[in-house]
């Protein structure tokens, strides 16, 4: 039974389930893109997917490698310029959910995608913020998807690229931010939601077969649990089919392009 799906499959599917049919979702590349499209192809056919390249209401049949593959533009309702995307659509408050990943996260769901080690003498220079610093504050709420491990789930970030709940409590409000920030963090082990008071990311659901010990071993802070912790429903056959077919179509599309050369 537990061999029927892989940890990254339940992660993607559990993240997809959080999206609603009426959402307008600003989609990051990689796992957020896979989860958003699974949602669109299963329970949320009416969802509006927006990529920062300017493509509005796009319906890709294969997952893009980059944020601006032609597939996104070909299947979009309309495509706007990048300044318009960031000014009217994101800053203008038209997006209900921003869907992000990251390299490092802390217990208040602040994200680092900039640098490991000191900024001026980096141990590892990561790509940087891209759209994330403003996505994090301009979307109604934020979902985060990240595989769990001690390198990524750290006690203290080397750099805050995008704001989560800051130092917790009412920190966002104090900074003048009116949106909710991260309301859900889905990993390959469990699902976190912020505590209503402290805003610390708290485990509310554990994927089948995963232990609390495993979760702690893969987290760089003392993990807290909600009073009631659910077991994540395993992926349905339909969800798995949709996800696997999407990945297979994507691999074929990218592979075919490679063979042409």
């Amino acid at each position: 039974m537990s061999a029927a799906y892989k940890p990254n499959e339940i992660m993607t599917i559990a993240a997809a389930r959080a999206l609603r049919n009426e959402d307008v979702c600003f989609v990051g590349i990689g796992m957020p893109s896979a989860a958003s499209n699974v949602a669109r192809l299963t329970h949320a056919p009416g969802i509006t997917l927006i990529y920062e390249s300017g493509t509005v209401a796009t319906k890709p049949t294969v997952l893009p490698l980059s944020i601006g593959d032609g597939e996104l533009c070909d299947t979009a309702l309309t495509t706007v310029s990048v300044p318009e995307m960031f000014r009217y659509w994101l800053q203008g408050g038209r997006i209900t959910v921003g869907f992000l990943g990251g390299a490092q996260i802390d217990k208040y769901a602040n994200l680092n995608t900039t640098v490991v080690g000191p900024y001026d003498k980096p141990k590892v220079r990561l790509p940087g913020g891209g759209g994330a610093p403003e996505i994090a504050n301009s979307c109604g709420e934020i979902f985060i998807i990240m595989a769990q491990g001690k390198r990524g789930f750290v006690g203290k970030l080397d750099f805050v690229t995008s704001l989560g709940h800051g130092e917790g409590g009412k920190h966002r409000e104090k900074l003048g931010v009116k949106t909710k920030g991260p309301t859900r963090l889905v990993t390959d082990l469990c699902i976190f939601e912020p505590d209503p008071e402290t805003k610390e990311m708290t485990v509310v659901s554990i994927h089948p077969g995963v232990t609390r010990e495993q979760i702690q071993d893969n987290t760089g802070w003392q993990v807290r649990y909600a009073n009631k912790v659910a077991e994540t429903a395993p992926p349905t056959a339909q969800e798995l089919d949709v996800l696997r077919e999407l990945h297979a179509r994507t691999a074929r599309a990218h592979g075919e392009a490679a063979q042409k050369e």
Binding site: E52, V82, P83, M85, F86, R87, L90, Q91, N110, T114, Y119, G129, G130, G131, A132, P133, E134, A136, N137, S138, F159, V160, T161, S162, L163, G166, H171, R172, L175, G176, V177
Partner: peptide, 30 residues
């Protein structure tokens, strides 16, 4: 920078303005 800042800075340049103004960078280390 962030994408929003870069996009705004280009737009300000095209518009002949000295700077771009936008709601951004809140709570980040940039």
């Amino acid at each position: 920078h962030s994408h929003a800042a870069m996009a705004n800075a280009y737009e300000a340049g095209a518009a002949g303005l000295p700077c771009a103004v936008f709601r951004g960078y809140i709570g980040t280390d940039l």
